[in-house]
């Protein structure tokens, strides 16, 4: 590999300036668990690597019962599941933060990096979508907010313009009687890429017997993470039942447009979307009822 320049800005402004100075030849570095592997493997090239780990706003976790959770884009996974507020209020996020890669990877890798790497198989994106999260982006022309389901545009591609960086992700405060869950299927038990993944979030009524709303999102079954609006909406207002869950799973399977590759076949992946939608909805329901 050729030599690359490296810089460690201390503020958002400096970071944006550095990113803008090289346009699409600049790459932002958080944990580096994707970027460094890609650069060394020749799958990406860059003239400038901008290390964002010294920018304070990118390394904070803050929670507030009304505005929800703000996760700095470079915050490593382990800090999420070690945070009492996150553990208590966002078990669906903890599900993915604690299964990405391995313990060692989770010490470096961040949810923000996972989003910006924009892999179809990203484990952190479906629960963020299911929870209605918003990405806070800053660039040379100011800041903008992008719903996470609109962030990725293709494998490894997203809406970030040259010079823009992801500063943080906002996850709304969990409504009463709500729960979320993420599961992925891998042939092994760690260090693997999802053959398929499903994140589900539900809001139940006070009785815990009826759906108020639900959101479902898929990994590894399309060029981008998939937000299954119809599947989630199908549950709204229905009583919690196997039939309702089955119908949502069927609709989620319809949204899956996978390919056959070394990790799985089309048939297997669509089947797994059904299995995992049922399983994640059931876990989310249990969590909403406070049963778990």
């Amino acid at each position: 590999m050729e030599a690359v320049e490296f810089t460690t800005p201390k503020t958002i402004d400096e970071a944006v300036q550095a990113m803008a100075s090289k346009g699409d030849r600049a790459r932002a570095l958080a944990g580096g668990t994707d970027l460094l592997v890609q650069l060394r493997g020749g799958r990406r090239s860059a003239d400038l690597v901008v290390d964002l780990k010294d920018v304070p706003e990118l390394n904070e976790i803050s929670y507030n019962a009304s505005s929800g959770l703000t996760i700095g884009a470079a915050t490593p996974c382990y800090r999420l599941y070690a945070d009492a507020n996150v553990a208590a209020n966002y078990p669906g996020l903890v599900d993915s933060a604690s299964l990405i890669g391995s313990i060692q990877i989770q010490g470096r890798a961040s949810l923000g990096g996972n989003l910006c790497n924009s892999a179809p198989s990203a484990d952190a994106i479906p629960p963020m979508i299911a929870l209605g999260s918003v990405a806070n982006v800053v660039g040379p022309n100011g800041s903008r907010q992008i719903p996470v389901e609109d962030f990725c545009t293709g494998p490894g591609r997203n809406v970030l313009e040259p010079g823009e960086i992801l500063v943080s992700i906002n996850v709304p405060a969990p409504p009463a009687n709500s729960g979320a869950s993420y599961l992925r299927f891998i042939p092994r038990n760690e260090m693997d890429i999802a053959v398929a993944g499903v994140g589900s979030a539900v809001v139940l009524d006070g009785s815990g017997q009826n759906f108020v709303s639900a959101r479902i999102s898929l990994a590894s079954v399309a060029p981008t993470p998939v937000f299954c609006k119809a599947a989630g909406d199908s549950l709204a207002g229905k009583a919690v039942s196997d039939e309702a869950i089955e119908e949502a799973a069927r609709l989620a399977m319809e949204d899956a447009k996978p390919i056959t590759d070394m990790r799985g076949t089309i048939r297997q992946r669509i089947h797994l979307v059904g299995v995992l939608t049922r399983r994640t909805l059931n876990i989310a329901i249990q969590r909403a009822r406070g049963e778990e």
Partner: peptide
Amino acid sequence: MMNSSFLDYRMPTALD
């Protein structure tokens, strides 16, 4: 060969 790495050539890990 499409899976020429330990990520995708799935040898068992200790957890398996």
